[in-house]
């Protein structure tokens, strides 16, 4: 921290102002707007104040619960991503030959736009698409089905795509932390005869805990707030509304069903859930890792 003279107290505010202005335009104004709109029924020019009716209708709405449950289903990806991240991070940490290239290659799916990824996998997962053809080639022909076109598999197919895309990021993140672990500790353990599993369990994982918890929250947030592109491009919420998720539903309410009041109400609900999650993480970091600097 720099110590600042009394008369220069305004300086940090000046430096913050451009960013603050932009964030106010893009975040503050819309959020307040959405908050207000959620208490109205809006149709064309007409705005009728309806109190918490939008919220009540939302809570009785089947599609809302379906969306919420689907979002929760997507949480399954989180442990999968974390485990994959840890496994590969530890593997690469051990400097197996070529690890630098592997790290980069694992990141390639992450570089793709979600929309582009969705389109590619839409083609691959079709009934006559690459995946089914490969299944047949390796003798699993009985598993061939329209992965995105039936209610029993659509959600899981999307989950698989998300895992495919996000995996490299977790690996890279955890690996970066591992690389900054004090080498002497690991060396000492090795000299004591500890095998890779013990080292991982006793040294690497504890060291990586903060990063893993950060990644955990990041993934949870992704599963709540950033699924729209996947759903829009691969299934548009179908089949039979089985892949509806909350941020997609907000879009549909605004664009297809033209009900801005409800769209705003759902947005408010989603914001509340997300902030609770982030709040919990912050609290966890405070109480579980009191020594971590803010």
């Amino acid at each position: 921290m720099i110590r600042v003279r009394k008369d220069k107290k305004r300086v940090p505010y000046m430096f913050m102002s451009p960013a603050l202005i932009m964030i106010s335009i893009v975040f503050l104004y819309p959020i307040i707007s959405v908050l207000i709109d959620s208490f109205f029924q809006i149709s064309g020019q007409k705005r009728t104040y309806t109190g918490i009716q939008n919220f009540r209708v939302l809570l009785e709405n089947d599609l809302f619960w379906k969306s919420l449950i689907n979002n929760m289903k997507f949480f399954i990806c989180v442990p999968i991503l974390i485990i994959l991240g840890i496994v590969f991070a530890v593997l690469l940490y051990n400097r197996i030959p070529g690890w630098k290239i592997y790290r980069v290659l694992l990141l390639v799916p992450y570089i793709f736009s979600i929309a582009v990824t969705g389109i590619i996998f839409d083609c691959i997962l079709r009934e006559n698409g690459l995946f089914n053809i490969l299944l047949e080639k390796i003798g699993l022909g009985h598993l061939v089905q329209p992965w995105l076109g039936q209610t029993s598999t659509a959600v899981y197919a999307i989950m698989a795509v998300i895992v495919w895309k996000e995996m490299g990021f977790g690996t890279m993140l955890i690996l970066a932390r591992l690389l900054s672990v004090d080498e002497s500790m690991v060396e000492a353990a090795r000299l004591d005869g500890a095998g890779i599993f013990t080292i991982t369990r006793k040294i690497l994982l504890p060291e990586a805990k903060p990063v893993i918890s950060f990644y955990f929250v990041l993934c949870m947030i992704n599963m709540l707030s950033w699924l729209f592109n996947y759903v829009y491009v691969m299934t548009k919420g179908g089949p039979v509304n089985s892949t509806y998720v909350m941020d997609f539903y907000i879009y549909q309410l605004g664009v297809k069903f033209v009900n801005y009041g409800m769209a705003s109400a759902l947005a408010v609900v989603l914001l509340i859930i997300t902030f609770l999650l982030v709040g919990v993480q912050a609290a966890m970091q405070h109480y579980v890792f009191p020594d971590e600097e803010d």
Binding site: M1, I2, V4, K9, V11, P12, Y13, F15, M16, I23, V26, F27, Y29, P30, I31, S33, V34, D37, I221, L224, S225, W226, F228, D247, F248, I250, Y251, G254, Y260, A263, S264, A267, L270, L271, T274, F275, L277, V278, Q281, A282, D294
Partner: peptide, 29 residues
């Protein structure tokens, strides 16, 4: 680098802001 009133708030707002889906801001914008 500066200590100023509201610094904590701004610093802590960064993560929550990252977690807001763009669809929420879409219609008002």
């Amino acid at each position: 680098k500066f200590e100023f009133k509201g610094r904590r708030i701004f610093a802590n707002m960064i993560f929550p802001l990252m977690s807001i889906p763009s669809v929420v801001m879409l219609f008002p914008l």
